[in-house]
């Protein structure tokens, strides 16, 4: 381009590549640089607009969509969990109340049974006691008779052994008299 810089360009072109002055100000290379710069920029621009940017933008949009959806699902599940917890607590309280009621009922029923059984047992005991009383007095009466009889017999035998002859009537009267004492 400029004739003044021609020598610099030639020097740059030769082997060894020693710079004469600033290669930046060697205007003869400007068309070359500008041409390849424009080619490069167009290639980058096409690669970006055709391939890279839509793809990355799509991935980012897709990801944020998935995240939003996941957060919504998580929120939903949290609400469900809260509801389930509430239902569980309700059921627990209900069960506790039921259990208390059943225990009270059972206790009352047992108490009633117990009272009835106690009453019945008392009655039986009373009856048994009365019966036993009768038997005892009977036995006592029987025992008294037996004693009298044994005493008469013994007295009779003793009198007979002593060589006496005693009549049953006087012995009986005598024993009875002794027993009365």
């Amino acid at each position: 381009m400029a004739t003044g810089t021609e020598t610099a360009a030639e020097a740059a072109g030769h082997g060894g590549g020693h710079a004469v002055g600033m290669p930046q100000l060697d205007f003869s290379t400007w068309p070359h640089q500008i041409f390849w710069l424009l080619v490069t920029l167009v290639v980058i621009y096409l690669v970006l607009t055709r391939l890279a940017l839509p793809r990355i933008g799509g991935v980012l949009a897709e990801r944020s969509g998935i995240i939003t959806k996941d957060i919504a699902i998580a929120d939903d599940l949290k609400q469900k969990a809260l509801k389930a917890e509430r239902a569980y607590n309700d059921a627990l309280a209900q069960a506790r109340a039921d259990a208390a009621r059943i225990v009270a009922e059972a206790r009352a029923a047992i108490q009633a049974d117990l009272d009835a059984a106690t009453a019945r047992a008392d009655a039986q005991i009373m009856a048994k006691a009365a019966e036993s009383e009768g038997r005892i007095s009977e036995i006592r009466a029987g025992a008294l008779d037996a004693v009298t009889e044994v005493a008469q017999d013994t007295a009779h035998e003793i009198v007979a052994a002593l060589g006496g002859k005693a009549d049953a009537g006087s012995i009986t009267a005598a024993v009875a008299a002794r027993l009365k004492e």
Binding site: A12, G13, G17, H18, A19, G21, P23, D26
Partner: peptide, 8 residues
């Protein structure tokens, strides 16, 4: 400046 020289 040699590093800035444009070489075919």
């Amino acid at each position: 400046m040699d590093q800035f020289v444009i070489k075919p």
